[in-house]
Simulated scan of single mutants.
Amino acid sequence: MKIRYDREGDVLDILVRDAQIHHAEDYGQVIINYDEESRVVEIEILEASR
């Protein structure tokens, strides 16, 4: 697992597994990216400093 924060975009990015993203679901300020088998690949939190 890797965690990165982009200050310019104010985005917190949590990389759960190293896989290609197949699809994503948007829950407002949280975007969850999934692989082909619907396993979580990455979680993005927009406006993370709030």
Rank of each mutant, 00 (worst) to 15 (best):
M1H: 09
M1C: 07
M1K: 09
K2N: 08
K2S: 04
I3L: 05
I3W: 02
I3M: 05
I3Y: 00
I3H: 01
I3F: 02
R4G: 00
R4I: 00
R4Q: 08
R4F: 01
R4P: 00
R4L: 01
Y5V: 07
Y5F: 03
D6Q: 07
D6F: 15
D6M: 11
D6R: 10
D6H: 14
D6G: 07
R7C: 12
E8I: 11
E8A: 12
G9Q: 08
G9V: 05
G9N: 09
G9D: 06
D10R: 04
D10I: 05
D10W: 04
D10T: 06
D10S: 08
D10N: 11
D10G: 03
V11T: 07
L12D: 00
L12H: 00
L12Q: 02
L12P: 03
D13A: 04
I14W: 11
I14C: 10
I14R: 12
I14S: 05
L15I: 14
L15N: 08
L15F: 10
V16N: 07
V16M: 08
V16E: 08
R17H: 07
R17W: 01
D18S: 11
D18Q: 14
D18P: 01
D18F: 11
A19I: 02
A19E: 10
A19T: 02
A19K: 08
Q20K: 13
I21G: 04
H22L: 13
H22D: 15
H22P: 05
H22C: 15
H22Q: 15
H22V: 14
H23W: 14
H23F: 15
H23E: 10
H23Y: 12
A24P: 00
A24N: 06
A24G: 09
E25T: 14
E25G: 10
E25K: 15
E25A: 14
D26I: 12
D26Y: 12
D26V: 10
Y27R: 02
Y27P: 00
Y27W: 04
Y27D: 03
Y27L: 15
G28T: 14
G28Q: 14
Q29H: 13
Q29R: 15
V30M: 09
V30C: 03
I31G: 00
I31V: 03
I31W: 01
I31Y: 00
I31P: 00
I32L: 05
I32N: 00
N33V: 00
N33T: 01
N33E: 10
N33P: 00
Y34H: 06
Y34E: 04
Y34D: 06
Y34C: 09
Y34A: 11
D35P: 01
E36Y: 10
E37S: 13
E37G: 02
E37I: 12
S38N: 13
S38L: 11
S38H: 13
S38Q: 07
R39T: 07
R39L: 04
V40Q: 03
V40K: 05
V41N: 07
E42S: 11
E42V: 06
E42F: 04
E42W: 09
E42T: 07
E44N: 10
E44Q: 13
E44I: 09
E44D: 06
E44W: 05
I45W: 03
I45P: 00
I45V: 13
L46K: 07
L46Y: 03
L46Q: 03
L46D: 01
L46S: 02
L46F: 07
L46N: 02
L46T: 06
E47Y: 09
E47D: 15
E47I: 05
A48F: 02
A48K: 05
A48S: 06
S49I: 08
S49Q: 04
R50E: 06
